[in-house]
Design a protein around this nucleic acid. Structure first.
Lengths: 127, 127, 127, 127
DNA sequence: GTGGTCTAGACCACG
DNA sequence: GTGGTCTAGACCACC
């Protein structure tokens, strides 16, 4: 079975449902969760994560809307990861969103592209 | 006086007070607002921006708590930008926060540092 | 024997039992399944379609309740298509239900009957 | 102010949130609700319609995701109907979906396009 | 067993 | 005042 270790924190500024959603999404994008794989039932997952059923339901709802999983009453929630190109695209878009954010801030603060590259290397070593 | 063109939008996902705060902070960090400069009164500013007085008060309160301005009853709110090193530090921290965010995501998605540098250049050209 | 190629899909938004039921009903209404014809046994049908026995039983139960088939213990399930007028009526009712749905929506959206006729022709060509 | 008479029924097979959503959508598409207009607050609306707060919240959430309204904490939920072309497009798509549904059924039941046009006129008169 | 819908509360951030 | 998130239950249809 796939690797699915979800770590959530009430201390985080991000809502619980978003933390869970992002981690499942990452697992699918990395390939840890394969096509057709069955995710935990809403009830089991909510007790495992110690969150409300409604929170897990929201996660599954949004993942379904975004095309990552498919839920069927009476059967469960399954991973949809058939199109490899789509997954690569999704990864690229997620990174690009953060890069745009970063470059925008750099511009407003008069930081050069060279400095950015240097700082990127430094941060990459530390993380 | 310094350059202080605040642009806010109800359409933005960010709360109004945060939009205003970030733009004042940027102006200070870039040097557009100099040390000792007088910011608009809460009352004038709120009518100029067409937001609640409470919203502007919150902006000034938070900026004071973060050490960017100083408010004196009966005199107004002044820019604190005396320590150039502190400003540079603040800028660096802001950028680093976003870089950590970016690198964390890259790691969870198995994106290499080389790819990141390439994508950074591409995004920099486009923005 | 009559033509009975049932195609079902877990991806469909419709429940399995409904997909199967509708296709059998269509076959009867079109005349592909004739009066008195014997339908597959619940057991065989469920293994052929790779669905639960309960699902097939539900299909046959509902078809019997709607008057399309008749089940006799120990003998099997037979097509009831004796009354040609009844079949024509059923077809007409099915179409009318959709037309009422369509016209109701058109009214709430201020779409004229002329536009509807035009769009119907266009869609008919494309489908 | 705009016309906003929502009629819901527990007897309907459609979920409550969908009934409400569709009626608000129709009002926007028809122009009964204009750009920038303020919708009822979640609390007021839920007591007016005698449904749960969560049901109204779901309606507003989905309408926001589909681009029909915009919700801001502390301000309320507003109608977004700026782009007239987009609204016309949305109307057309909604009608086309039903037409495709209709034509598909007609094909499986061997109903001719001429018959469809005739039945459409009859239903249009009756509704 | 599963997910889909709904209720009746609560606390928080925003304005 | 507003919407955003979350909880702890419930009933239903589907398999």
């Amino acid at each position: 079975m796939g690797n699915l270790n979800i770590i959530i924190s009430n201390a985080s500024e991000k809502p619980l449902y978003e933390q869970i959603k992002e981690q499942i999404k990452s697992a699918i994008l990395k390939g840890d969760l394969e096509n057709g794989e069955l995710l935990p039932s809403i009830r089991n997952f909510s007790t495992d994560l110690n969150v409300s059923i409604l929170t897990v339901r929201r996660v599954y709802d949004e993942l379904e809307r975004e095309g990552f999983v498919s839920s069927k009453a009476g059967k469960g929630t399954f991973v949809l990861a058939g199109n490899k190109d789509l997954l690569e695209d999704t990864k690229r878009v997620l990174i690009e969103e953060k890069l745009i954010d970063l470059v925008t801030l750099s511009n407003t603060l008069d930081i050069s592209i060279e400095e950015l590259h240097k700082m990127l290397d430094i941060v990459y070593e530390e993380v």
